[in-house]
C-alpha cells in the first residue's frame, strides 16, 4: 500500500474515533427468503446490529436465552444496540427454521 493512502486511512480513522466510541461497529444481518445470513457473526457489547428484512413477511430476531427480541416489519431495517455479552443462538419466532448464532464479546 502507498504511504499516502495509508495516511489518509489513518486520518479518517482518527475522525471516526472522534465521532463515536472507538469500538462501536455496525453488524449487518440480512433476513431474505427465510434465511438469516450470516449464520454466524461476531460482535462486541455496544455494537449496533442492523437487522435488514428483505422479505415481505414479518421476522423477528429472538434470542433463545431471552437477551433480545427484535421485530422487523416486512422490507424494513431495524437497529439494535447489543447490551450483553455471550454466545447467543437466535431465531425467528414466526419461522422457527430461521436460525443463527451471534458471539458477543464484552
Amino acid at each position: 500500500m502507498q504511504p499516502g493512502r495509508l495516511r489518509l486511512i489513518a486520518a479518517s480513522l482518527a475522525i471516526g474515533a472522534m465521532a463515536a466510541p472507538a469500538h462501536a461497529a455496525t453488524i449487518q444481518i440480512v433476513m431474505e427468503n427465510m434465511v438469516i445470513s450470516p449464520a454466524e457473526a461476531s460482535a462486541k457489547v455496544g455494537d449496533t446490529l442492523e437487522l435488514i428484512n428483505k422479505d415481505v413477511l414479518v421476522h423477528t430476531a429472538t434470542a433463545r436465552n431471552g437477551d433480545f427480541d427484535v421485530t422487523m416489519p416486512p422490507k424494513k431495517t431495524v437497529t439494535y444496540v447489543l447490551k450483553k455479552a455471550g454466545a447467543v443462538d437466535y431465531y425467528c419466532r414466526f419461522h422457527p427454521n430461521m436460525k443463527a448464532t451471534l458471539k458477543i464479546e464484552p
Binding site: 427468503n33 427465510m34 434465511v35 422479505d55 415481505v56 413477511l57 419461522h95 422457527p96 427454521n97 430461521m98
Partner: peptide, 16 residues
C-alpha cells in the same frame, strides 16, 4: 420463486 422459498420454510415448520 420467493413464494417457493417461503412455503418451503412453512413445510419445514409444519414438519417440526
Amino acid at each position: 420463486q420467493t413464494g417457493l422459498k417461503i412455503f418451503q420454510g412453512h413445510e419445514q415448520h409444519a414438519e417440526h
